[in-house]
C-alpha cells in the first residue's frame, strides 16, 4: 500500500521532476561554465580573495531556483489532488490520513533533496578543481539556506493547498512567505553555520512539515475538500 501511495506521487511528480531536473542541470552547467570562464580570465589568487573576503559566489543565479522548485513540486503534486474535491479519493483510501500525508510529503521532500544533492554535488565537484576544501565547504554552507528556503516553500505551499479554511490559508501563505524570506535574508556565505541558525532553520522546516498534517486533519471537518 505504501508503495502504491509512493507510486501515485511519482506519477504526479514525474513531468515536473524532469523539467526541474533539466532546469537545475542547466543552471549548474551555467554556473560551472561561469566559474571556468572566471579562472581562465583572472589570476586564481584574486578569485580566491573575492570569494574568501568579499563573499562572492559564482552560483548566485541559483539563489531563487530552489524555492521556485519547491513551489512547482508542491503544485505538481497537490493540485491534481485538490481540484474538484479529488482529495476525497485519497481521504477514502483504506489507510490512515496521516500515512497518506506522510507518504506524499516524504516523497516530495525526497525528490526535492535529489535536486538539492545535484546542486551540491555539482558545486562541490566544480569547486574542487579550483578551490581548496575550505572554500568548497563555505560554498556548500552558502547553498544550504537556498535549499532550505526551497524546502520551506514546498512544505508551506502544501499547507496552503490542503487547508480548507480561507483565513487559515491566507495566514499559512503569509507564514510561508515570511519564513522563506527570513531564510534568504542577505548574509555572508557560511553565516547559517552557527548552531543557533541551524536550530532555527531546522525548527522552521519541521514545524511547516508538521503543519501539513494539521491541514489534512481539517479536511474531515468542513466538507470543502477544496
Amino acid at each position: 500500500m505504501l508503495l502504491a501511495l509512493v507510486w501515485k506521487e511519482w506519477l504526479k511528480l514525474r513531468p515536473a521532476f524532469f523539467v526541474l531536473l533539466a532546469v537545475h542541470v542547466a543552471m549548474n552547467v551555467w554556473a560551472a561554465a561561469g566559474l571556468r570562464s572566471l579562472f581562465s580570465g583572472a589570476h586564481p589568487e584574486v578569485l580566491w580573495y573575492q570569494t574568501i573576503i568579499l563573499g562572492n559566489i559564482h552560483f548566485d543565479m541559483l539563489r531563487h531556483v530552489p524555492w521556485i522548485s519547491g513551489l512547482i513540486l508542491a503544485g505538481a503534486q497537490h493540485l491534481p489532488e485538490i481540484r474538484d474535491k479529488r482529495l476525497r479519493l485519497t481521504l477514502h483510501l483504506p489507510v490512515r490520513a496521516e500515512t497518506a500525508m506522510a507518504c506524499s510529503l516524504g516523497f516530495g521532500a525526497c525528490v526535492f533533496f535529489l535536486l538539492a544533492m545535484l546542486d551540491g554535488a555539482v558545486i562541490a565537484a566544480t569547486d574542487s578543481a579550483h578551490y581548496p576544501a575550505e572554500i568548497v565547504a563555505i560554498h556548500l554552507w552558502a547553498l544550504l539556506p537556498m535549499e532550505a528556503a526551497g524546502l520551506a516553500a514546498y512544505f508551506g505551499a502544501t499547507v496552503v493547498f490542503f487547508e480548507p479554511s480561507t483565513s487559515r490559508r491566507l495566514h499559512a501563505l503569509l507564514l510561508t512567505i515570511t519564513a522563506v524570506a527570513m531564510i534568504l535574508v542577505p548574509a555572508r556565505p557560511g553565516a547559517w553555520s552557527s548552531p543557533g541558525a541551524l536550530a532555527l532553520g531546522l525548527f522552521l522546516l519541521t514545524a511547516l512539515a508538521m503543519a501539513t498534517f494539521l491541514a489534512m486533519a481539517h479536511q474531515r471537518l468542513t466538507g470543502k475538500n477544496q
Binding site: 474538484d84 474535491k85 479529488r86 476525497r88 477514502h92 483504506p94
Partner: peptide
C-alpha cells in the same frame, strides 16, 4: 473504509 465504496459527485477519479 475497505468495506465501503464511495462514488463522488462528478465521478471523481485520479485523472492523471
Amino acid at each position: 473504509k475497505r468495506r465501503i465504496g464511495l462514488l463522488f459527485e462528478g465521478h471523481l477519479a485520479y485523472d492523471f
